[in-house]
């Protein structure tokens, strides 16, 4: 692996930074002949500050998972560079440090859990890092408490619900004391309650523990509290902003095969029907407040008449 020396680290950079990141993979036919090159990530510049909650949206095949896999050095840039806490992911000597600092949680909890007992599974990461036994137990306890799964520590993971399993997976990552966690569609296979549990646990990690979160999801309601949203399309960052800025652009998101939360869509539809509502309503509360103002104004008009 050649480290690109021209891309120097700057000292004010965030916990995760990509600089003109390009990732290409080579498509081959059955005989192994090169058929073509696909550019899955195309000159992406992102900068995530320590402690931020960042969401990545994008349709299937937009490059968001490929981007995510660069953050803990599962994939290496074809061009450009990725830094995690100041370490270049292309620098082989830092690879284990990077993977410890940037933990990853995937879609299917059943593919990530290996222990026979919940606490064993959570202890797997720190054990592999060579953490002393005493401290492993401490970390297991803290991590399970952080995701609200401590009372299940003696259970067998295969008796848990999807949301519970996914929280155990997250605890397994936390036990490695990462500075950031990347979650690639962690709720795609869960029922509504499981989704709620996981999102709540992730938000708590961000709020309470200050862990940087990168959440990839197709559920728009999950990210209304994010600090920043990146929308990917064709390997590029197509939109970038706060949830309110992003979700104000209902039509543009639809063009990008995405959606907005139901409450935002309803507000947008009401706007189109001539009701005077602000752009980018994100929560039920906001819509109810705005509509009751509208209703009061109408009331007054009526009284005046």
């Amino acid at each position: 692996m050649i480290v690109n020396r021209f891309l120097q680290k700057d000292n004010n950079m965030g916990i995760i930074k990509t600089d003109k990141l390009v990732f290409e993979y080579i498509r081959r036919d059955e005989e192994g002949n090169v058929e073509g090159i696909t550019r899955a990530v195309d000159e992406v510049d992102i900068d995530v500050k320590q402690g931020d909650f960042v969401a990545i949206l994008g349709h299937n095949g937009s490059g968001k998972s490929t981007l995510a896999k660069h953050i803990n050095a599962i994939l290496y840039p074809t061009e450009g560079a990725v830094w995690v806490d100041g370490m270049n992911t292309a620098d082989e000597k830092d690879i284990w440090n990077i993977r410890q600092e940037a933990g990853m949680v995937f879609q299917n909890p059943d593919n990530q859990i290996i222990g026979q007992v919940v606490e064993e599974d959570v202890g797997f990461g720190p054990e592999n890092m060579g953490v002393p036994t005493e401290e492993i137990w401490q970390r297991v306890e803290e991590s399970l408490k952080a995701v609200g799964m401590y009372e299940f520590r003696k259970h067998s993971p295969n008796k848990l619900s999807g949301g519970q399993k996914q929280r155990v997976s997250i605890a397994g990552v936390i036990a490695m004391h990462p500075k950031c966690i990347i979650l690639d569609e962690p709720t795609a296979m869960l029922d509504p309650n499981g989704r709620k549990e996981v999102v709540r646990a992730v938000r708590a990690l961000n709020d309470v523990e200050g862990i940087t979160i990168v959440l990839i999801t197709h559920y728009m309601e999950e990210i209304i509290h994010a600090d920043k949203v990146f929308v990917m399309d064709k390997g590029k960052v197509a939109m970038e902003g706060t949830p309110r800025e992003i979700f104000s652009q209902v039509e543009k998101l639809k063009e990008l095969r995405l959606d907005v939360p139901q409450v935002t869509l309803l507000a947008h539809e009401l706007q189109k029907s001539g009701i005077d509502l602000p752009d980018g309503i994100l929560t039920i509360d906001e819509l109810v407040q705005a509509l009751s103002r509208v209703s009061q104004v109408m009331q007054k008009c009526k009284e005046r008449r």
């Binding site: 349709h59 299937n60 795609a188 095969r257």
Partner: peptide
Amino acid sequence: EPTAGLDPKG
């Protein structure tokens, strides 16, 4: 669950 893991448009 025919739509699990698909983007909203899909």
